[in-house]
Nucleic acid binder design. Structure first.
Lengths: 141, 141
DNA sequence: TTTAAATCCAACTATTTTACTCGGGATTTA
DNA sequence: TAAATCCCGAGTAAAATAGTTGGATTTAAA
C-alpha cells in the first residue's frame, strides 16, 4: 500500500511552488535542491504536472515554473492522480475504468477496497496547497 | 497507491475461510479454485498467515486450513498488515519504524501522508471477517 | 500397509515497475 | 552571443512482483 516516489516528490515540488508562489517563476533546479530530489528526475514529473494543467512553465533564462492556479484552488488529490493515475487500491475498484472480475464470492472483498479508495480520496481531495501553507506557518511560529 | 496481489488474494482466501468456517479444515486447493488464484502462489501467502497466527493448518489427507479465531475477531487490517507489512503510504509515516527525513520544508507533506495512513487503517481495522460474511448474506437475498 | 490427499519448504525465474541518468535541442534574457 | 532554463526521448540498473518447480513430510482412508 505504497505511493511511488512520483506522487511523493510531485507533492513536495508543488508544495514548494506554493510556498514560493508569486510573480516570478521558480527554476526547477532550486525546487529540486530544496526538496532533495534529483533534478533530472523531477523534470520528468513536472512535465506531467504541466501537461495536466497544474503548473505553467516559463522558458529561457530567468524562467521556471509557477502554479497554474492559486494554491487555494489546487488540491492534493489532483496532484496525486495526475502523477499516479486514478486512485485504486486494486484494479477492480479504480476510480476510472475498473477492471471486471467475475468471482464466485459476490466480491465482498471488492466493497472493502472501494471503502479504502473512498477514504483515501476524501483525505486527498480535502487538502489544498493553501491548507498546507497555513500548516507550515503554524509550525514556523 | 496500489495493493499487491498478496493482500488482495490473502483477503479473498481469509474471506473464503470465513464463509466456510466450521468444524472441518478447508483444503487450500479448493480455496484457490473458488477464488481463482494459483494454488502454488496461495500456498506462500497462507504460510505467512499461519505464521502470523491467523489460520491453523491440519496436515495430511482430509486436512486443510481453519481460521485461528472466530470471524468476528479477525479484522481486515490484521490480514493486510501480515501480508503487506505496516501501513505506510510513504516510508516516513510507516506505522512501524518510520524512516527519518530531514527536509527543509518542515515536512508538511508528511502530515498529509500520515492522515492518509490513518484513514486507511481506520477503514481496515473497522471491518471484521464476520462483517464481510453478513454483507455476503445481504447480497444473496 | 499401501496409497492418495494434503501441508510444508526452499529455491528458482520471468516480467514489470521503479527511479533514475544521459544527451541534445529549443527558447529567452542579459 | 553566452548563459540559463525548459523540453523531450531514449536508455538502464536494481528491485519488486507474481508466480513456478520440485521434493519432503504428515495423515486419513482403502
Amino acid at each position: 500500500m505504497r505511493l511511488s516516489t512520483r506522487g511523493h516528490y510531485g507533492l513536495k515540488a508543488m508544495f514548494d511552488l506554493a510556498l514560493n508562489y508569486g510573480e516570478h517563476p521558480i527554476p526547477l533546479k532550486s525546487i529540486a535542491e530544496r526538496q532533495g530530489i534529483s533534478d533530472n528526475y523531477l523534470e520528468q514529473l513536472i512535465s506531467v504536472l504541466r501537461k495536466a494543467g497544474l503548473v505553467k512553465s516559463v522558458r529561457g533564462a530567468q524562467g521556471g515554473y509557477i502554479l497554474a492556479r492559486e494554491p487555494e484552488h489546487i488540491n492534493v488529490g489532483e496532484i496525486i492522480r495526475s502523477l499516479e493515475g486514478p486512485i485504486a487500491p486494486v484494479d477492480c475498484v479504480s476510480e476510472v475504468e475498473p477492471s471486471e472480475c467475475d468471482q464466485s464470492d459476490f466480491c465482498i472483498t471488492r466493497t472493502v477496497w472501494a471503502r479504502v479508495r473512498d477514504s483515501i480520496a476524501e483525505v486527498l481531495d480535502s487538502i489544498s496547497l493553501a491548507d498546507m501553507c497555513r500548516d507550515a506557518e503554524k509550525v514556523k511560529v
